[in-house]
Design a protein around this nucleic acid. Structure first.
Lengths: 362, 362
DNA sequence: TGCCTCACAGAAACCGTATCCCATACACTC
DNA sequence: GAGTGTATGGGATACGGTTTCTGTGAGGCA
């Protein structure tokens, strides 16, 4: 009698099918599977056998609708291809999996419209948190947008986490996980200065990008600390990509060729810069020293291996997830403005082979 | 009266809240929002205003339980950090977004247990398809595992897509998107041979990895075509990473130092090989030529820029999603063994600066 | 032996949305 | 002015689980 149902089953088996076939109630099956209620060994065995026979899995949608369900974190990235972001995603994903959480990844392609659409989509999914990665432009509008997102998610019982972005001002329900951008740049610049370099080409990134601003500021502070005048003419802004590194060095060799070192805002920019120097017949590090920022795998795969600033991307991801999980377990009604809203991780210089004392090439 | 509900609302607003506040029925709200049923302009306005006021979004779980819902693709990756995989993921994600589909990413960490767990998790989520990326070991067990996955997903109305993995034998409901692994290796080896190289160090990858087997086979065929004896002693197997490239070259320089070119199984392996050659005082490409495989961004960021085989990773991702979408729209009851189960994309050699005719170093 | 407690199983009430089926109002036609 | 068709809104139900509430048999104790 129940054979017909099972045989002609086009879609997936339901909990009712399992119950019927095992000769027990639906409630019992649910209890065996979720395991949060005592059941007799006999019942468990009978149910599990049918579950295996039917290759049954519970319907996650129904489950989460009924109140149970796996918590989910959404990770929103500008560009899944960026090496740094991949590491953060890995950290989040790993920590999520460890707790049995699920993680979703969406890419925004640097488009604010898509970012908005994705945040809403994630809200529909009822995610426990939305993790936003990557640098942000245009400080004022950014603050407004993010504050709206934060409140909107908060009202829906979710939470916004900003990773590698500037923290939000005022009383906004969001968590920020950041690293010491300026401090890393300070240390990196100090490293060059203490090696004797005085004329340093600085490629901090886009002027509007907060990350670039921090890195530039750190470099400036180091110059001040060493009593070396900082030359605005040796600063060149541009995107964080290989091409910019190449072109910036090309232009600098034309206009201000007396620099003895390059302080790149990113390892990828450094790779481009290195290539341009070589194309101009200059040796690295004998003629020109060069340093990067981020410590992605590329840094140790270049020749010479790149001295750079290690940013704990993967740990940032883990920390972000832990912050969300703690908040969720530590009771929902957490006080606004409580501590732990802004976590800052440290960075450090990784010394490899791309820096030498300045030559007298100039 | 309804004020109490709205004001004290801890979680998110429901469609009922919206209906009540707008003074219409739940059904009407649903119809306004999904837009697949005629509603009067007046009704639409009233409902939309309340939706905005309450910042309401529909519950995706409830929606998909009730039959509607956004199709979702799951992407399962070994390691999110791998550059090639990131590009496939990007292709899938992009194509999915274009159709309004959602995409989920999970990482297996090369662990078959986790792979199984993830496939089940995705089955629970009711995904439209599961896309599995990356090379696979152990041919026999692999076939069995995948066949089980395929049938299991198929029974649940979902579908398995293998990308960059060997196709399944027999009558299994799965789609494979592949590229011409062997052909690319053949072309790459021919490139070296036609430049005059005869003693070539080959680093195809792990011997059990099907990708490595294909690349090795392609190289062998090229040697045969050129009438050059293929030396098994110049083949060194190992993982697809930087360290293997370095160590393999180090060892080869010790044992069989007369090679004039390196045919690396991967761009990353090539990077390691290049570094080891430099460490031994050899110049690339003046003393030793070197080629890679994959054409990831790294290839053009090395010095010299790497000649390599371009694999259309992103397109593979797009193609994979298109295959799933077509199948889903083209009626569920597609005949088994129908065409389109195995799609093969072409590759081509990208010539850069890492190959020269052999020197008489030896 | 009778009563009470405990351990477990079943029935039923939700969770939030889509949709089927029916009711109503209005415009038209004859 | 009655009858028919069309456009649109509402009520009820289904989706597949979880959980609360209730019921029942077995065992412990007097």
């Amino acid at each position: 009698m129940s054979q017909r149902k099972v045989a002609g089953d086009a879609g997936r088996a339901t909990i009712r099918d399992v119950a019927e076939r095992a000769g027990v109630s639906v409630a019992s099956v649910s209890r065996v599977l979720s395991g949060n209620y005592p059941v007799s060994e006999d019942l468990r065995r009978r149910v599990m056998k049918v579950v295996r026979d039917l290759d049954y899995v519970t319907n996650a949608h129904a489950r989460s609708l009924a109140g149970g369900g796996t918590p989910t974190v959404a990770i929103l990235i500008n560009n899944i291809t960026g090496a740094a972001f991949a590491h953060v995603a890995k950290g989040v994903e790993g920590a999520a999996t460890l707790r049995g959480w699920l993680s979703l990844v969406g890419t925004t392609g640097d488009d604010p419209e898509r970012e908005l659409a994705l945040v809403n989509l994630m809200r529909q999914q009822g995610v426990a948190a939305v993790v936003l990665l990557g640098g942000a432009y245009d400080y004022d509008e950014y603050q407004l947008r993010m504050a709206r997102f934060a409140r909107s998610l908060d009202a829906a019982g979710s939470h916004l986490v900003l990773v590698g972005r500037p923290p939000l001002e005022g009383d906004v329900p969001a968590t920020t996980v950041d690293y010491d951008n300026e401090g890393g740049a300070y240390a990196m610049a100090s490293h060059l200065l203490s090696a004797g370099h005085r004329r340093v080409l600085v490629l901090p990134g886009h002027a509007e990008l907060t990350t670039a601003q921090g890195r530039l500021r750190g470099a400036q502070r180091a110059f001040e600390a060493y009593g070396v005048p900082f030359e605005p003419g040796l600063v060149r802004h541009g995107p964080y990509d290989y091409e910019h590194g190449y072109e910036a060095v090309e232009a600098a060799l034309e206009e201000t060729p007396d620099f003895t070192a390059v302080l790149a805002g990113t390892d990828v920019v450094a790779a481009g810069a290195m290539q341009a120097l070589r194309a101009a017949g200059l040796r690295v590090p004998e003629d020109v020293s060069i340093v990067g920022y981020d410590d992605i795998p590329l840094a140790s795969q270049l020749t010479p291996q790149l001295t750079t600033v290690h940013v704990p991307y993967e740990e940032m991801g883990r920390v972000a997830l832990r912050a969300v999980a703690d908040r969720r377990e530590g009771g929902a009604g957490r006080r606004k403005g409580s501590d732990g809203d802004h976590l800052v991780l440290g960075t450090h210089v990784v010394v490899r082979n791309s820096v030498r004392p300045p030559s007298r090439r100039g």
